[in-house]
């Protein structure tokens, strides 16, 4: 249904928590996503001009890198960008066909490729650039939160997580129920001050991003020693008074 659903009480809000403090920008999640979804039920993710001048294709997840700040606070930040399964998902309400919909029971936003007419309006409505058009099939594609993995009863429980989460080598991606304050993901968001991307646009994304941090080791500042303690002799003395036993 193209109206946003009323979540029943106790409904889940499944989503990803992505740790910008840990993401090394390796593209593993992006490629794994492409691989899973090419094979999976969502259908093919096309590639165009595979071996030619302008290789291009449909991806659900893309990895950017940025430089932020200046001086001591500066940092290189890698940002994996995919659908955030927003609560106020304008991409859903603008859809004229009902192909775009948000599930009441877990909040996942999906495209029904059999209904989609490829009007592209939903991609215009998404501020995150999370939807990509499949030129071959003429329909819109987007991240499915790996719905065909997370509910697959044939998979062992531990493997019922999105492909991108399973593959992330630095474990910067976490999956879970953000409606449950006790879940691992909710706890992480709380502890690490997880944020919304483009919060000011009011889409209320489910996915959260954990901001970069900076570990420090407090020590007393040290100057070059002067006076009696300085010089090779002084230092050696300091070292070698100790009784040593081999």
């Amino acid at each position: 249904m193209t109206m946003l659903p009323k979540s029943p009480p106790g409904a889940k809000k499944l989503g990803l928590v992505i740790d910008l403090d840990t993401c090394v920008g390796c593209h593993a999640c992006a490629v794994s996503c492409k691989e899973w979804n090419t094979k999976g039920e969502a259908g093919l993710l096309p590639d165009y001009d595979k071996y030619g001048a302008e290789p291009d294709g449909v991806w659900f997840n893309r990895i950017h890198s940025y430089e932020s700040g200046a001086g001591d606070g500066c940092r290189t930040v890698n940002l994996p960008r995919s659908c955030l399964h927003c609560e106020d998902a304008l991409c859903v309400t603008v859809c004229p066909t009902g192909a775009s919909y948000k599930r009441a029971e877990d909040g996942i936003v999906l495209v029904d490729a059999d209904k989609c007419i490829g009007c592209k309006l939903c991609s215009w409505a998404c501020p995150y650039g999370a939807r990509e058009f499949d030129e071959d099939a003429g329909v819109m594609r987007k991240c499915t939160l790996c719905i065909d993995r997370i509910y697959d009863k044939d998979l062992p429980q531990a493997e019922r997580e999105p492909a991108c989460v399973a593959t992330c080598p630095s474990r910067a991606r976490h999956f879970g129920d953000l409606a449950d304050p006790q879940s691992k993901v909710s706890q992480l968001v709380k502890k690490r001050g997880g944020v919304d991307l483009l919060g000011e646009l009011g889409y209320r994304p489910t996915n959260k991003y954990l901001p970069p941090r900076k570990a420090t080791i407090p020590t007393a500042p040290r100057e070059a020693p002067t006076g009696a303690a300085s010089g090779i002799g002084g230092a050696l003395l300091k070292l070698l008074d100790r009784a040593l036993s081999r």
């Binding site: 193209t2 859903v92 066909t97 003429g138």
Partner: peptide, 18 residues
């Protein structure tokens, strides 16, 4: 402009929100 012209009729269904 549509990717799937033959399904254009579907566009009449979601007048409540779209």
């Amino acid at each position: 402009h549509l990717g799937r012209k033959e399904r254009a009729w579907r566009a009449f269904t979601q007048w409540r929100s779209s």
